[in-house]
Write a protein that binds this DNA or RNA. Structure first.
Lengths: 343, 343
DNA sequence: ATAGCCAACCAAAGCGCTTTTAAAATGATG
DNA sequence: CATCATTTTAAAAGCGCTTTGGTTGGCTAT
């Protein structure tokens, strides 16, 4: 059933060269022949063997996504959505997506291996950490890459796409301050991750600007699960001077915070205000006429699409300047915020 | 930096044949030579070019996962977790994982293409639907496959791994009946999917066995988002004869149900009982000393691991009987169930 | 009429491996 | 010491494609 180039060219009475060139739109083939070849190829469902053409061209036509497995517990849905965006772009350009999960201690070996085996033409780096060792490694391997997020340390030029986490959380904090809140808690992701570090910095800047001294006790950093959100919020709500507002770094974590608020006999949006960061994951659906949560929102799927496009462009034009892209998050007003009320 | 077989063999003063055989553990190489070769290969970070060896052997050493994109809205986290399990198995066996998202109308073309391009040695079929057309297609393409789930229609022999959805929901329903509940609602996934059809059938069987006539009004089927769970439960709780128990097909959906119960001023586990199906997704964490939800639990990650192992075995021994695997779900008692109480 | 040119095509090399086939070196046997 | 079996190494073919470097024949220009 599957037919190869040789058979196709014999069937057409042409050389493999001509058939290959006709299919790849090279100019030195007459239009008439090209049509004849393309029709025959379609009729016989001919598809060039991906391995053979990769070997011949030296291009794998594949992009690698190496998912750090340590963090994937709570990161998985975000990776999935990001990849959903990227995947469509790859298909459109005839690229494949190679997925691999790796623990932190396997990471270097994994990147080295896929580079040496020439399995991919480039990679997307997920969940960057502060002073991320993957950046120098990938440079050394000469493997084009785009980082989803940024390093905070100065590692020179590299391609990245990120949302303006600092600004988003600055604005969110400011909104809460404007509503009269003073004791604002931050339920953040693990601060080894750059996105979390940036969010905290936005939060701190807004507090400082308002002349408020940040209270370490009001800041939680860790995996953003429902359970962690619940526990962190429960503990905070039991304090003598409980916070009147929560800034939560993820929808999942916020569901736990919401549970804690209910359990404490309080009403979200009235007694306690909550702002979340919303990655716009389709299955979380923080939407409706009035969204459940006030949120800084930015589509991670769209980020995936853009990252893929950036990387493919880099592969096509290796000499061009490395692209970077900063996406602003929208601040969406929902039902979970309201003015400060005396406890 | 990257070195190839030819260079390595020249460096060692051996032929490419001998080096290749030494590395691939063929017997016709002296142990001494093999050690020398392996050390040199390690020292020079030699890795065989994946494309070249794939071309030479005719085996891609890659497995395809084609994710149906229509359902991925709420399915994504489950896919991600399943793949996390499968991925580790692939790495261990030196296989790659090729990921692709495809709409239903692109599905056939996608499978046909990756088969024709010889990009993969086999595929995992996700989210089977009733009378799934992918089964005959993959047979025709002679592409080994394992289905995560089963078709309900009789399509002859094929490899699958599934949890016993019928039994799980039969037992869950029976538990609620034993607790005195009669009006039991079912918040299910889209019933074009076989897992949902099987769960309903378990639910119906248990009701019938108890001599209870099922009420269509008490059954919801659709995407299992938090929002849908909330809406379905809210509507059901407003009925004159409201259900006293909910059977919910996913953790996400159950979070919405829980919200509806709270909003109605009721207490979950006291006024209303809830049993969920829990795919044991790490970031959902329905755990603790007493889990929040009573649940039928089965790890989807483990299913991914097993599915991958089954598929690799099929590829290694194409003549062996097609493997199937039925996993039983545990019924875990949590805090969300209690005896029926007069409303 | 002949040189020169161009459009259209083709043969063959090469990508980096694996594997078949063959040859050389070694050892055992009578 | 010749003979044969066995171990070790090598040459070369081939996987299916792309691409280099021609070749051909028809056409224009001199």
């Amino acid at each position: 059933m599957p037919i190869n180039l040789k058979q196709l060219s014999e069937y057409l009475g042409l050389s493999q060269t001509t058939v290959s060139r006709a299919l790849n739109n090279y100019p030195e083939v007459s239009e008439e022949t090209r049509q004849r070849v393309k029709q025959a190829a379609a009729a016989h469902h001919y598809r060039p063997n991906a391995r053979a053409s990769a070997l011949a061209t030296g291009r794998a036509r594949a992009i690698g996504h190496i998912i750090p497995v340590d963090s994937s517990d709570w990161f998985n849905p975000i990776f999935a959505e990001f990849i959903a965006g990227a995947s469509a772009t790859y298909s459109r350009h005839g690229y494949e997506l190679l997925l691999r999960m790796a623990r932190a201690d396997e990471e270097a070996a994994t990147y080295t291996e896929i580079a040496a085996r020439k399995s991919v033409d480039g990679v997307i780096v997920h969940a960057p950490r502060i002073n991320d060792p993957r950046i120098p490694l990938l440079r050394q391997l000469r493997l084009p890459f785009v980082i989803h997020g940024r390093d905070t340390a100065d590692q020179g030029d590299y391609a990245w796409i990120d949302i303006n986490n600092r600004r988003a959380f600055f604005r969110a904090t400011k909104l809460l301050l404007d509503l009269g809140h003073v004791d604002i808690a931050l339920i953040n992701g693990g601060e080894a991750f750059t996105f979390a570090a940036r969010r905290r910095s936005g939060y701190l800047d807004a507090l400082q600007e308002a002349g408020i001294t940040a209270d370490k006790q009001l800041m939680f950093a860790g995996d953003l699960t429902e359970g962690n959100g619940y526990q962190a919020a429960t503990a905070l709500l039991q304090r003598s001077q409980r916070p009147s507002a929560f800034l939560v770094s993820s929808y999942m974590g916020a569901l736990g915070v919401r549970r804690a608020i209910h359990n404490a006999g309080l009403t979200m949006g009235k007694d306690i205000s909550v702002i979340i960061h919303d990655d716009d994951l389709a299955y979380f659906h923080n939407s409706g006429d009035v969204p459940q949560f006030t949120a800084t929102r930015s589509s991670v799927k769209e980020a995936g699409t853009l990252a893929a496009e950036m990387l493919l462009a880099m592969i096509d034009q290796p000499t061009a300047a490395v692209p970077t892209r900063l996406l602003e998050a929208n601040l969406i007003l929902g039902a979970s915020t309201g003015p400060w009320v005396r406890p």
